[in-house]
């Protein structure tokens, strides 16, 4: 009985255990795992993250040269950060706020070392060269034309 009284007294004096939420927001610890961000200048569009993602929330569009990241589907495991060969993916430390939309993030890849982009630029250069050539020579070379056709097919599909 005395112990109960002592406890009651202690609890009356001590301040509340719970935090005063909207006025003092919860402070996260350093190293919290939240969603990931893609660095378009480093990515080489290899597709390893897409294949290794357990939640299948990363979609790499090689033709459009962009990464589609389904934020609300992501499980924040951080496995893509581990497998990325060029460290283009980094994990944030701030949780995503609740939202009404599906937070799909598109990142445009601008890295010139990416094989896909290299190939496209080479094709564009060849096309340009081919466009200039017919003025001087009669028929253009067969190879760039063939590549152009493939590109058209991919974009239409």
């Amino acid at each position: 009985m005395l112990k109960i009284l002592a406890n009651i007294g202690k609890n009356l004096i001590s301040k509340p255990y719970t935090s005063n939420y909207p006025f003092t927001p919860y402070q996260h610890f350093p190293g919290v795992r939240a969603d990931v961000t893609f660095d378009g200048t480093k990515c080489i569009l290899c597709g390893l993250c897409q294949r290794s993602c357990p939640a299948e929330c990363i979609l790499i569009h090689k033709e459009q040269e962009q990464i589609e990241y389904l934020n609300t589907q992501c499980i924040r495991c951080g496995y893509c950060v581990r497998v990325c060969p060029t460290n283009a993916i980094s994990q944030n430390e701030v949780y995503t706020k609740p939202s009404r939309q599906r937070l799909t993030v598109y990142t445009k890849v601008t890295n010139e070392n990416a094989p896909v982009i290299k190939k496209r630029m080479a094709a564009e250069a060849a096309k340009k060269a081919a466009a200039e050539k017919p003025a001087t020579a009669g028929t253009g070379p067969a190879k760039p034309a063939g590549e152009k056709k493939v590109d058209e097919k991919k974009t239409s599909a």
Partner: peptide, 24 residues
């Protein structure tokens, strides 16, 4: 749970185990 957030980065689903070891 706070200790979990401190050590692994997540409160409930820790995700630090992978085949071959841990990641944190």
């Amino acid at each position: 749970l706070d200790m979990f957030e401190r050590t692994t980065g997540n409160r409930v689903l820790h995700g630090i185990n992978i085949v071959g070891g841990v990641i944190r």
